[in-house]
Design a protein around this nucleic acid. Structure first.
Lengths: 255, 255
DNA sequence: CGCTCGGTTGAGATAATTCAAGTGCAGTGG
DNA sequence: CCACTGCACTTGAATTATCTCAACCGAGCG
């Protein structure tokens, strides 16, 4: 597979010119295979590279002093992270694989050079930041104002939607998700046993099947239970004409 | 007051050169005064301008079909919003004033031109985006994995911290916050009556006073109850050398 | 003066948690 | 091939945090 997951995802909304695509595939990088449960970035770690998930799933997470864990987001093929390496030295959260993963890392400087030479890429990254913020906000709503079954349903639907965008899944295919009860619990702010109970009842309703891997049977009912609305993913977004704009060149900084 | 709240805030981490500051104050804009409770942006609205809170407080919020409300974030003097107007036409959430506000709006195109001519500004905006994402993530942790008193304490501390950064408050001054029980409840995902009860008990503990406006008496105890840690605000951030980077120029896009 | 609105407080209901025991499957070693 | 162990999941029962409903209070305002 020479088609990069990252590229595939970006192409959803920006058509990247040939030279840009070429430059992206030839940029200096490291491709690492990592087993499940391995930490990619630790909280407080100094960031020196930008990463792209090539295969597999990972999570962003925060751990409180007493061990409580909150999953902030799921990362799947094509997702880029640690863009903030470009201005900020330390990560405020950790990143960990939850399946076998292939992760590509690009040194910050190389990445910046790439972006500066390929404007369409800058615009694409800006879009991906907007989308990610939307996802974070929706996660707040999910956890803050929805009950157990709504939270879980809403999460599952988002994940499928994003999986389809990443081109790792087809729309009709009944996607199977690599999620344990514990992961779901820490993502939506419930206890694992309550998640288990809730999923059991969803199974009884014929919404999902859960022998081994979790599999959704009825996306439509799920969406209506969850009150799901795509808008926050900004799938309709089209880049504005940014000609001649946003040239982050030299900086005049002190401190 | 010729010193712009936005400028003041940006100066926290990037020193903007004189010409940049001059350009910022002379950019074409509209300055609006709005009473409390007025909507600045509606969910789904097409975004055409970038906004800066000059005075007062506002909230980002989402309303579910059945009326449940989730406050996503608070906006205070110096906060900029709708940067996403630059690529995306529709807002996925609403913005509403919660005090008397002064809001400055700049047409997207003018703003883009400003940024493109003043690289230090681009770097500053990138920082502010990173900070905002950090705030969103911390809000997820707050709502997902903390109990009532922790949520409320943590929120209050963050707000004070940001208020100090915005230079609308002094560090020693015992800040008074324009928050109703209902607002706090919708921010941290609780019912207003439970918030009221929790605050009552905080008052009994000598942590806050709440005659009329809410006022914190003991920040240190509050911080230790909340398990508060500044890291996510990235106050230590220093812009990297982005020389020659991120030139979002022409785009090669198709639909 | 009488309203309205935010806040407080009580009592009962409910959603979710904790603790604990039990099930079933996958992997390992004999 | 079978037993043994570990681990994720399930289920029950008791507990707790939070919610809802409802009454009441007090300040601000026409």
């Amino acid at each position: 597979m020479d088609m990069d997951a990252f590229l595939a995802r970006l192409q959803n909304y920006v058509t990247l010119p040939g030279p840009t695509r070429a430059a992206m595939s030839s940029v200096r990088h490291v491709l690492r295979q990592m087993p499940r449960g391995k930490s990619i970035i630790n909280e407080g770690e100094v960031l020196k590279r930008v990463h792209v998930i090539q295969k597999g799933w990972a999570i962003r997470k925060r751990i409180l002093e007493d061990g409580r864990r909150q999953i902030l987001n799921f990362l799947m093929p094509g997702d880029i992270f640690d863009l903030q390496a470009m201005i900020d030295s330390r990560s405020d959260h950790a990143i960990e694989t939850i399946t076998l993963c292939e992760v590509r890392s690009i040194p910050t400087q190389e990445f910046l050079a790439l972006v500066s030479e390929h404007p369409a890429l800058a615009s694409a990254l800006w879009w991906s930041t907007v989308q990610e913020e939307g996802i974070l906000r929706e996660h707040i709503v999910r956890v803050g104002r929805r009950n157990a079954i709504e939270r879980i349903s809403h999460l599952l639907i988002e994940l499928r939607r994003r999986l389809i965008l990443s081109e790792s899944a087809d729309a009709d295919e009944s996607v199977s998700l690599p999620l344990s009860r514990q992961l779901i619990a820490d993502a939506v702010g419930l206890s694992p046993v309550h998640v288990s109970r809730t999923i059991s009842s969803m199974r009884r309703m014929g919404l999902v099947s859960a022998n081994g891997h979790l599999r959704v049977l009825d996306w439509d009912s799920l969406a209506s239970i969850a009150g799901y609305d795509d808008q926050y993913l900004h799938l309709d977004a089209r880049p504005l004409d940014m000609t001649g704009c946003v040239n982050v060149g030299d900086r005049e900084t002190t401190a």
